[in-house]
Write a protein that binds this DNA or RNA. Sequence first.
RNA 1: GCCCGGAUGGCGGAAUUGGUAGACGCAGCGGAUUCAAAAUCCGCCGAGUUAACGCUCUUGCGGGUUCGAGUCCCGCUCCGGGUACCA
Length: 859
Amino acid sequence: MERYDHKAAEPKWRAAWTKAGLFAAQAQADRPKYYVLEMFPYPSGRIHIGHVRNYVMGDVVARYKMARGFNVLHPMGWDAFGLPAENAAIERGIHPREWTYDNIAVMKEQLAPMGLSLDWSREFATCDPDYVGQQQAMFLDFMDKGLAYRRSAVVNWDPVDMTVLANEQVIDGKGWRSGAPVERRELEQWFFRITAYAEDLLDSIDGLDAWPDKVRLMQRNWIGKSRGIEIPFPLTAPAAGLDALICYSTRPDTLNGASFLAIAPDHPLSRTLEADDPALAAFNAECRRMDTTEEAFETAEKKGFDTGLTVRHPIHPERKLPVWVGNFVLMDYGSGAVFGCPAHDQRDLDFARKYGLPADNAFFLPGDATPVADEALVPPKTDPVVYIDHFAGLAEATSQEGIDATIDWMEARGLGEGQTKYRLRDWGVSRQRFWGCPIPVVHCETCGTVPEKKENLPIVLPEDIDTSQPGNPLDRHPTWRNCACPVCGGPALRETDTMDTFVDSSWYFARFTAPKAETPTDAAAAGYWMNVDQYIGGVEHAILHLLYSRFFARAMAECGHLTAANHEPFQALFTQGMVCHETYRHPDGRWLAPEDVSRTADGATARADGAAVEVGPSIKMSKSKKNVVAPEDIVERYGADTARWFIMSDSPPERDVEWTAAGAEAAYRFLQRVWRLFSEGLALPAFATPAPAAMGEPAEALRRAAHRAIRDVTADIESFAFNKAIARLYELAGAVAKLDAEAPDAAFARREALEIMARLASPFAPHFAEELWSALGGEGLLTGAAWPVADETLLAEAMIVLPVQVNGKRRAEIRVAPDADAASVEALALADEGVRKHLGDGAPRKVIVVPGRIVNVVV
RNA sequence: GCCCGGAUGGCGGAAUUGGUAGACGCAGCGGAUUCAAAAUCCGCCGAGUUAACGCUCUUGCGGGUUCGAGUCCCGCUCCGGGUACCA
């Protein structure tokens, strides 16, 4: 009895698949296609369990769809530009390209033994000159359509390293290398006009019915459509050339409670005043010493500076409101000025209490006219409130009605202008970094900022760079920057900003349909393969990557690279949970990998020097925190199928998992167990032997279990419940083992069950399934063979067990036919001894019979 | 801060979406096999109580709706993701 030998079987079957060309997709107009895609990896160095989980999920879907007769496209590539390559280059003195391509080679090699049904012929990296050139061509198209433009925007500036920092590089407001407090600095930067599609991106979410609701909700909230009004507040004395300050508000119904105005530190008025006011200048400087994240902005302590100026309340001109500069007002949002209504906004109330400003109610709750004290009154917008003053007529209106009525009222009197605004901002794509796709424009002294000629693309990054200093090496490169103006031919300077790496990942799915095309896409290939039928990736991409891709599809369609049918490029989306692990930090501040730490119940020490290691929370596996675990150990000891089986069985795909390898052994044991069921104890009949006409009941029971497995595993795969599908297969194996080998027709039933097992297990453990299939005498390759169909006649149950409750507590079980009528079920339930014991003397008040489910007797 | 999730035995999880809570797996315990071990096979396995049949409690916490709540509603706690320059 030899064991199943994965070391012999796995390479053999992978070679067979390759030889048969099963995964090299070709468009075939007469066949239905299925495009399954997992979010492609950043080549950080090594594949970790999180990657494996992602790609195996896609592989299960791809192999299942193949078995269902689809022409499947399942490509893979590399999201190859990014910050870690630059850091590695600085640390090791090598070119980011070298580091990146080395990593790709390593990771590809790690992926190879997993047996993924990938079409490697379509592979590319986003840093390949070809991809860079096509992306640059699209940038020029976007410029042409007004979808790419330049304006100034703020960045995190490290005043010591004299460089721009990513948000990740700012720790507690300080540069990660220099430790210097970061400053906000304005630079001219490139933007994509995603806001032009705000309404469409929002509306179209309704149609994404194969996306998770949570992602749709997050995207809706991110776009953040709101109806509000711009209200001018006249200055009592004009200042800085302004007669009035314009405030945008989504809660104009609180206008009667306005007690102050707050403007952004960078508001033109504030900027003018600070020139003559050192105290204000100091206040503003402090406000600008903050990193650019929304989180830092929102959680910072709210502070203000009284300018001494006043405005008149628009509907109560006798009221003068003070104008403050507030660190909680952002110039980018609305108009850079807001009115504060402390009674109905907690932030404003805190601010008012801190600086001694009044808090007057604009409305009360019905029957309760208590003025606000420590807590702002902000009832749900759908609850009725009682307005006072000029909105007193809206006695029991909801806040939403109050807002709408106020906008109309103000507009009718010329006191403001209703506006629909979006939270969504244009997409800043400029990065002051080397390792990215160069933005293909040229700055000429005579012609200004002009696009590069398409025939000069790709603009590739130089090989000879100096990474010894912080900042973008392109800025100080001796020759790369200098070029000829594409318009006048005179001397000019190349743009040194590169593109956000989210640009690279916003259209790779389209490029996979024709990776060698001489234009960004090929109409015929995109026409056949697009859209992605099933997209799979981490939930951490729920907003940015997915929203940018939706925008890109629209922009590409506008430029003729896709069509309107591709506006939503991802037909169905599945967001898998993240694979998490504890983090370990050495006392010297370095993050340590799990394999470099020895962990005990109450602490951890570094293997290298025995230092006590700080154990951090379990968070998503990432290169930067080093909390990654590689699949090699499991693959080496037990084979790829075991690794695949275990990682799919261990937890529901949408859930985060804490990685432990304790259960991998069970997956291996299972495969061996199934192999033994084939190889031991029973001579199995030939593959195509028909079912005996009348089978013995124990064998028939196994047949029913096998066909139920077909039904259940199929449904579980369709609904991404891979862990449940695998549980069904464990049950099927148990049923096979339970059937006595001496029972009549046992050999036939076992052979059929094992054939079904091989077919159902093949998406999860494809090498093993091939080996079993071939051992059973199956013809050709199992991969791509038709998916089994359950025999309906074997699915029906003769009798079912119904629980009987008395007053909601389970007291007995009765056996009934599945289609028994309610009256007979009720009679049977009431006759049951266990039930009668709990009924007492009286007759039941009520009997609830849910057919096929439950009986509840109420006394 | 704001937006979005999650919490079920010692552990990972299941529960047909309001109908038997704990499928399946891990760990553990007991037995068979073995000179012994590994491997394998069989059985037990939420807590309390009981000689036993049973009974009581139990799905992060506190309320509520319902014949019936892990599932729905209201209010919390803790953990995770995102927060526009990590990808």
